[in-house]
Write a protein that binds this DNA or RNA. Structure first.
Lengths: 233, 233
DNA sequence: CTCTATAAAATCGTATAGGATATAGGATTG
DNA sequence: CAATCCTATATCCTATACGATTTTATAGAG
């Protein structure tokens, strides 16, 4: 007898060809808190009490404390003994400058490496990620910016993926979580410039020109910095 | 196996003349596990059961789970649902290469910046950290290497401190924990070369010569890489 | 208004129990 | 003999209750 209606193994346990265990409560709680941080539902610097999360998620203290510990390790929440947890504070001007210095040290170099290693398949992926063809128009300013921020993150991550240094990529991705929160706080206007700059990077990569790619990426990041610098007035 | 050595109140509350909250149990447990990872008492890849830590430290599950969560967030331990925690695996050749690529992107640049900002006071601190005057002689090879590794870490961290980018410094410090474990695993021989290279960096910094400092740091890191590369044979 | 003392609330940690799952080793079957 | 199944134990995961300590809020005195 065949054709039984059980969930196929492929769907249930396979993802990308690998088996994966069903997620634990700790993991779910972690994801939930993370999402609230990234969406500003929990504001930077605001307190996060275990008890309130207990009520909100309807789970016990144990998985929440463990998840908060993990977020602390990642620097997204801070803990003070006998006071409790709170979301990491808003980024400072100094930190902002440091972040861009780091990006300028890593990303242009990554773009150059990616240019050397470029091929048809990768280029197609990048083009898709660049969001060039994405709807630049949009009524809802907020939604529009949110879309742009996501596209931008994906594009930069893709470039670093093709630069073939997973450690550097992870480092930038980690910093990006903080950066993302900062950008949302100031819901800075989407400028068409950023998308144009992405296109310039893309063109250099398509031409497999390392120097041009490095230069385009550097200019893009510098411009990005200058655009966001207005937030500190 | 005995109960953990809790810090006395004086030690816990006073540090550098400042009052700080007495540390929580979670913090103490975190430190204890961290120390065991850094000293290889817990080997890379080996399992870490909560119950065994409960017995060893004589504390309940709660603070241990929270501390392990934090270590997971920092990437020092991994967790698999219903399997448990284990120490992060040994570094791979690929990861090793990536780490040195990252260092070469950040540290020479940092050395150049530090050279520009150098002054008498900082220079004195660096000289102390460089371990130049440190006993190069030593009977116990293992202890000798351990001393060198610590000196090396402090020196590099100091340079980055004076480079005035806390974010980059933290990034490198974070990676250093993994690197430290790797080095200890292969208890690679201390070479006098490394200390000579430190002196070269120091000389360039003393001369406040950015280009020379950058060059000296680059050569030092490249040589360090080549020396450790032997571990992958 | 400021300071202090008391009360309320929150955090931290302990202890414990029960359900779920993994792993190893033995029993069963072919 | 080999492969499969089954069972026992260890471990993980979560929930819950409780006490101790500290913070925070409140109210009263100077």
């Amino acid at each position: 007898m065949q054709a039984m209606n059980l969930p196929s193994l492929d769907e249930a346990n396979l993802a990308g060809g690998r088996i994966q265990r069903s997620s634990s409560l700790v993991e779910d709680v972690y994801e939930a808190i993370f999402a609230q941080l990234m969406s500003l539902k929990i504001a930077p610097g605001s307190r996060i009490t275990v008890d309130s999360l207990v009520k909100e998620f309807n789970v016990s203290h144990t998985p929440i404390r463990e998840a908060l510990g993990r977020l602390e390790g990642e620097g997204l929440v801070l803990k003070t003994h006998l006071i409790g947890y709170r979301a990491a504070p808003q980024i400072t001007k100094r930190r902002f400058d440091e972040l861009y210095e780091l990006r300028l040290l890593l990303e242009p170099h990554g773009a150059a490496k990616a240019a050397v290693l470029m091929d048809e398949v990768k280029l197609a992926q990048l083009q898709k990620s660049a969001g060039v063809m994405a709807h630049r128009e949009g009524k809802d300013e907020r939604l529009r910016y949110s879309n742009f921020a996501r596209q931008d993150a994906i594009f930069h991550d893709k470039v670093m993926e093709f630069a073939n240094n997973e450690l550097v990529r992870e480092t930038l991705a980690h910093q990006h979580t903080h950066f993302h929160i900062f950008r949302l706080m100031f819901h800075s206007r989407v400028t068409e410039e950023a998308l144009d700059e992405h296109e310039a990077i893309l063109a250099a990569l398509a031409a497999a020109d390392p120097a041009a790619a490095e230069q385009a990426m550097r200019r893009h990041i510098e411009h990005s910095r200058d655009r966001l610098l207005l937030a500190f007035d």
